[in-house]
Amino acid sequence: MANEVKIALAGEGGQGVQSVAEIITEAANEEGKEALYIPNFGVEQRGGVSIAFVQIAEKQKIGSPKFEKADIVIALSDRAVLRSRQYVDERTVFVYDKSIQGVEDDLPKNAKQVLAIPAIEVAKNELHPRVFNIVIMGAVLHATRVVSEEQAKQALENKLGYKFEQNPELREMNHKALARGMELVAGLAQG
């Protein structure tokens, strides 16, 4: 990873961007890195676009909790594209879900790279819609290398271990989702 990585994750409430941010930063912290995560929050408990601001550094303490421009922006709905493009500049990789309709004109023009990944489709057709956010997590990890896959799995274990105990297939599905997410970005990077 770069010395310091800034990530903005934006999605609809319920898409799980906040838990992705939480798991990634906890994993980074476990690896001894400095991590900071802050959710945006307003008066609405539910509904509206949800954004997670994540910063991870090798050693140095993180500066201000929010930032102007991100190294990677992930947008998971049409509204999320509109809300999150303000965090994009010429160094930003902008990732959005391929299934989002009618946002072609709204995509940032100034990004270093704009990637469309079929995360929703993969989760729905190959795995289960509930692991959609883990596919996204895999994509973020591959794009940023902020934590290792092993550490990410450990963090998943810490967060969902009690569920995995009851249903070991769930563990397998989560691991698969993580791997598929990583592949989605890897495939594009090669192409």
Binding site: E22, E26, E34, A35, I38, P65
Partner: peptide, 10 residues
């Protein structure tokens, strides 16, 4: 402040 209240860090 609200940032310090809600953010996570080590």
């Amino acid at each position: 402040d609200g940032y310090q209240a809600k953010m996570r860090e080590s």
